[in-house]
Simulated scan of single mutants.
Amino acid sequence: MTGVFVAHAVSVDGFITGRGPSHGNGLGDGGVLFDWYFGGDTPSRVFEGFRLSAESVDFFDAVAGRVGISLAGRNTFDDSGWEGGGTPHPAAELVVLSHRPALAADRQHLVSTGIEDAVAVARELAGDKDVALMGGGATTAALAAGLVDEVILHQVPVLLGAGRRFFQELPGHIRLRPVEVVAAPDVTHLRYAVVR
């Protein structure tokens, strides 16, 4: 069965953007959370132009290679500037979860009836690969609904102090089981299974 995971770069204090994320400035001010994409000498086999550290490349490419489709909430969609048809993954289409009208372009699918329906559509479109969640709102809703199998954090050694938090308020505790830890010079990759 198609799995559902979230993988995101996050600061040590839990932010996925700097201050002031907005349309065309999705990372907010500073944008340091993704410097590790270009901080090494080893090219990614999945994302053209990414040059990662030797410690990061195998972990990153293994996760990126699992993606059959991405699923993002409306804030992530708007702030990332994908309304013209872009997607976050070079080989995967995008499901956008939004209660507000949005234009879905080629390789994009709009779902407005909630996270359960969005994940169901994404699973169908993913084929034999996995669904990759993006953004704090969609991730939190999917976690609260018991739809997430794995949480992968690319923890960057920085305290941002403000920005958009990754995890929003959840209805209760969600237990995670550590599966893998990969330390790299500019990021630590943490993979957790969601305990059911």
Results as ranks from 00 to 15, higher is better:
T2Q: 14
G3I: 01
F5L: 11
H8G: 02
V10Y: 12
V10F: 06
V10D: 05
V10A: 06
V12A: 13
V12H: 03
D13A: 11
D13Y: 01
G14C: 08
I16M: 04
I16T: 11
I16V: 15
I16Y: 05
T17S: 12
G18W: 09
G18R: 00
S22G: 09
H23R: 12
G24S: 14
N25F: 09
G28I: 03
G31P: 06
L33A: 05
F34E: 09
F34D: 10
F34C: 08
D35A: 10
Y37L: 13
Y37G: 14
F38M: 13
F38E: 15
G39P: 10
T42M: 14
R45W: 08
R45A: 15
V46Q: 00
F47L: 12
F47I: 13
F47A: 14
F47P: 09
R51L: 07
R51K: 15
L52M: 09
A54N: 05
A54L: 14
A54E: 15
V57A: 06
D58K: 13
F60P: 08
F60G: 12
D61F: 06
A62V: 00
A62D: 15
A62E: 12
N75F: 03
T76R: 02
T76Q: 07
D79R: 08
W82C: 01
E83G: 15
G84S: 10
G85F: 05
T87A: 00
H89T: 04
H89G: 04
A91Q: 04
A91N: 12
A91F: 13
A91L: 15
A92E: 13
E93H: 07
H99N: 09
R100K: 12
L103T: 14
A104P: 07
D106Y: 06
H109M: 07
L110R: 00
S112F: 03
I115W: 01
D117N: 14
V119F: 11
V119S: 09
A122I: 05
R123Y: 00
A126N: 02
A126I: 05
G127L: 01
G127E: 04
D128V: 06
K129F: 02
V131K: 03
A132M: 10
A132E: 02
A132S: 08
M134R: 07
M134E: 02
M134G: 11
G137T: 13
A138T: 06
T139D: 12
T139S: 11
T140G: 12
T140R: 04
A141T: 02
A142R: 00
A145K: 07
G146E: 13
L147N: 11
L147W: 05
L147Q: 03
V148S: 02
H154E: 15
H154N: 14
P157W: 05
P157S: 12
V158G: 13
V158A: 14
L160K: 00
L160Q: 08
A162V: 14
A162Y: 10
R164W: 00
R165V: 07
F167V: 10
F167S: 10
E169D: 14
L170M: 13
G172W: 00
R177H: 06
P178Y: 02
P178G: 12
V179N: 15
V181G: 13
P185N: 13
D186E: 05
V187A: 10
T188I: 14
T188S: 06
H189L: 14
L190P: 04
Y192G: 04
A193R: 12
V194G: 05
V195A: 10
R196W: 01
